[in-house]
Amino acid sequence: MEQTTTQNEVQFSDAAMAEIRRYISHYPADRKKSAILPILHIAQAEFGGWVSPEVQDKVAEILDIQPIEVYEVATFYTMFNLKPVGKHVLEVCRTGPCMLRGADHLIEHLESRLGCHVGENSADGLFTLKTVECLAACGMGPMLQIREKYYENLDPQKMDQLLDDLSKE
């Protein structure tokens, strides 16, 4: 279940809280902070694909740490979106092996099809186009990631099909 954030009121669902507690139990009792990355992932999935400052403050509260400790971590790791994103975040690999197999063309194609540049949201707000570094799929490039799923061995035709399918969702 997705939830939205409102100012000063961030509430995880019961299922998410259970998952958070499960992760915290993996580390020594005095090392709760270890769970910060798993919890940020859960938070991002829970609150519309990004982690707002309010969400990060909530994570700090759960872990009994200062909010700055969460900000420091959330801004270090590239998977956490710090600004609102579209419904589907397209993370296209741009690194060497994928580039050799045509990632540049795929990115150009996406930019023209979505009418936005890398780092921006499409006009309809449905898609966010991001480029990312190597996703450990070098033999299956070019490829991209949407949420937890990899789409591999892509070309512009397959890409169009995928975007059509996602638009209908």
């Binding site: 400052p53 909010p67 700055i68 400790e69 801004t75 590239t78």
Partner: peptide, 20 residues
Amino acid sequence: DKRVHGVLGRGDAAEIGTYI
């Protein structure tokens, strides 16, 4: 007793700040 600033971001974009 309570730190409110730290190092944010990564690489050569890393900066000292309070975030909010």
